[in-house]
């Protein structure tokens, strides 16, 4: 067997031969398109862990959707969206009206949500169903789920393009945006809506526990490759694509669970970026510009 054939079998063949692998790959790519830029903005707003909390917070909504319609992404997605947004808004409300900081109120609400979600799923479903909700089933994604994910990614890109300028100003200098009459709260809420929507898109693929994986790991890895905001967003998308391709391949050839493998692939890329990225630790140690010339 030639080297080319071996490389083909190891990388492309699964996607050429199996429809479920193609759908899984397209889902990963669509998730990366939307989640990558959202993750970068979450990171820059120092809200990385808030994204994690939010991903757990969608569970009770997804669980109610599951109770009503079984493993249906639209039903679970709608439930997740409603509860995710409620948690985001309630956390914001508590932190703005009391001395409790936003991260602390997020922690309180997401723990409550997580516990309620697990309880609701366990009322009806088996432990297998619970595992599906918690860890996702990317290889079982159907056409409708794919449309939903692609729709959310498209909406994310369009909305981000529309509010890019005030959103950046709100991240960088919120006081200035408010002073010049920009409605910072509106953009903050729209951004939180995008976070929740992308987490909903990710949870059938990666589960509610790891949906944030393809959002934050590519974003943090992108920090080691790009210095501009558009560059970081583009890098995050690429990292998410790569993590999807690598993770699905490893999962296909070794038979391990696909969701965690994709997230671990993103972790691997993050580690390599940290070490060898353009702004990684090795390059920083090797280049000593103050000694040049």
């Amino acid at each position: 067997m030639s080297l080319v054939t071996m490389a083909y079998d190891a990388t492309l063949a699964p996607f050429v031969e199996f429809g479920f692998m193609r759908r899984a790959l397209v889902a990963c790519m669509a998730l990366g398109l939307g989640s990558g830029p959202v993750g970068v903005l979450l990171m820059l707003r120092r809200m990385s862990l808030v994204g994690d909390a939010m991903s757990h917070a969608v569970l009770p909504g997804a669980a109610v959707g599951f109770l009503v319609a079984g493993l249906s992404l639209p039903a679970m997605g709608l439930g997740g969206l409603i509860v995710g947004l409620a948690v985001a808004l309630l956390s914001g409300l508590v932190s703005r009206t009391t001395a409790v900081r936003e991260d602390a109120s997020f922690a309180s609400f997401y723990l409550t949500s997580l516990a309620a979600g697990v309880l609701i799923v366990s009322l009806k479903g088996s432990s297998v169903d619970l595992l599906h909700v918690l860890f996702g089933t990317i290889l079982a994604i159907d056409q409708n789920a794919l449309y939903l994910i692609a729709g959310i990614s498209s909406l994310t890109l369009v909305l981000l393009a529309l509010i890019y300028r005030p959103l950046v100003m709100e991240c960088f200098d919120p006081g200035f945006l408010r002073a010049v009459g920009g409605r910072g709260l509106l953009y903050h809420v729209l951004f939180l809506l995008l976070v929740v929507l992308n987490l909903v898109a990710g949870f059938q693929s990666l589960g509610t526990l790891m949906a944030v994986g393809l959002m934050m790991l590519p974003a943090v890895a992108a920090r080691f490759w790009a210095v501009s905001l558009p560059g970081m967003m583009f890098s995050a998308m690429l990292v998410a694509f790569l993590a999807g391709i690598i993770g699905l391949n490893i999962s296909f050839h070794t038979g391990v669970a696909s969701g965690p493998t994709i997230v671990l692939s993103a972790s691997g890329i993050y580690l390599l970026s940290f070490l060898f990225g353009r702004l990684g630790i090795v390059r920083q140690r090797l280049s000593r510009p103050h000694l040049a010339g």
Partner: peptide, 10 residues
């Protein structure tokens, strides 16, 4: 202190 100077802006 109210401005994020680490933000990736030119």
């Amino acid at each position: 202190a109210e401005v994020d100077r680490s933000f990736p802006l030119s």
